[in-house]
């Protein structure tokens, strides 16, 4: 079981991803925008972060940039949610040093398998 932070401005995505991750046995925290995400990140430590790419205010890319600078979150795996239209965003996201991305609409199997792979890799490194 891992502690996961979900960041997305769209309620439907939050609910869907939350339901999927909960069913997979993870502890899920949600944030409706980048500011809330940063607040929660200041209080808790997460094993993995799932964030939307395009959000008003702090965008997903800015969030990732910020996280990669922070001591605590530098090595936290990040999965980005992108749209099919935002092909360029995927490239941008990879440049922003995310660990993986999932194209919306979320396919539960893809999301779970990607997250589990990342978590395994992280725990392998840790141990």
């Amino acid at each position: 079981m891992a502690k996961i932070l979900l960041v997305d401005d769209q309620d439907s995505i939050l609910k869907t991803a939350e339901a999927i991750l909960k069913k997979a046995g993870h502890e899920v925290f949600t944030a409706a925008d980048g500011y809330i995400a940063l607040e929660k990140l200041a209080i808790f430590t997460f094993d993995l972060i799932v964030t939307d790419a395009n959000m008003p205010g702090i965008s997903g890319f800015d969030l990732v940039k910020a996280l990669r600078i922070g001591e605590k979150t530098r090595n936290t795996p990040i999965v980005m949610l992108t749209s099919r239209q935002e092909k360029r965003d995927v490239e941008k996201a990879i440049q922003a040093k995310i660990n993986d991305y999932v194209i919306k609409p979320i396919d539960p199997n893809i999301l779970i398998s990607k997250i589990n792979a990342l978590l395994e890799k992280a725990s392998g490194k840790a141990s």
């Binding site: 309620d11 439907s12 609910k15 869907t16 939350e18 339901a19 999927i20 069913k23 609409p105 396919d107 539960p108 199997n109």
Partner: peptide, 27 residues
Amino acid sequence: YDESQLDKLAEYESEGKSLIETLSEDF
């Protein structure tokens, strides 16, 4: 319509209901 998308989400639950139901009601 992409029914397969609903099929994929069918097994999940949210707020005490099925996820699809919750999302639909929101919609």
